[in-house]
């Protein structure tokens, strides 16, 4: 018998449950604390191991060696992107949101973030730069960067 054939679940005897974990508190970790502090300063960090530079910053590199945290500077380039039209409940967004995989030349990996650009204008290879919240509103979170925006051609 499928519950879906009933109009309401309460029509059959059942037990309700809810995991009694109110929340999770995730620590950012040894490298993460420094990355968070750098975000408050308006800086984005990567990690260098030998000759390789990786983003995002971590304590170690994929080859397992201990890394050195270094600031990475743009220009950031869109490596791939998507345009989001609906939220997770299937509701239409007021305005489409552009989400992109962003990288910089000479570094492996990158960051995922919003890009404030007209969906018609977004393309792979577009140069962008981060726009941070005002200093007093930064909390050491990835959302301290509000979004990336196309670099103005001067």
């Amino acid at each position: 018998m499928s519950l879906w054939k009933k109009s309401r679940v309460v029509d059959v005897i059942h037990v309700e449950g809810r995991m009694e974990t109110e929340k999770y508190v995730y620590t950012p970790g040894l490298a993460g604390v420094k990355v968070a502090e750098a975000l408050i300063e308006g800086k984005i960090m990567g990690v260098r191991c030998g000759g390789e530079l990786y983003i995002p910053a971590k304590t170690y590199c994929p080859d397992h060696s201990e890394g050195e945290l270094v600031e990475v500077r743009g220009p950031w380039v869109i490596k791939s992107y998507t345009i989001v039209y609906e939220d997770m409940y299937g509701e239409k967004l007021d305005k489409p949101v552009v989400v992109a995989l962003l990288g910089i030349e000479g570094a492996r990996g990158g960051l995922i973030h919003y890009v404030d650009v007209d969906p018609d204008k977004v393309r792979i290879g577009l140069k962008v730069e981060p726009v941070f919240k005002p200093r007093e509103e930064r909390r050491g979170l990835i959302t301290d960067i509000m979004f990336f925006k196309p670099v103005e051609h001067s």
Binding site: Y26, G29, A31, K58, H64
Partner: peptide, 27 residues
């Protein structure tokens, strides 16, 4: 009880120590 390290960093620390004690590397 409460460590600052992320789960991944904990795994990395233990793994690195085990490899070092064996005189091996991830390779």
């Amino acid at each position: 009880r409460r460590l600052l390290e992320t789960p991944r960093e904990l795994a990395w620390e233990a793994a690195r120590e085990a490899l070092n004690s064996a005189g091996l590397t991830l390779k």
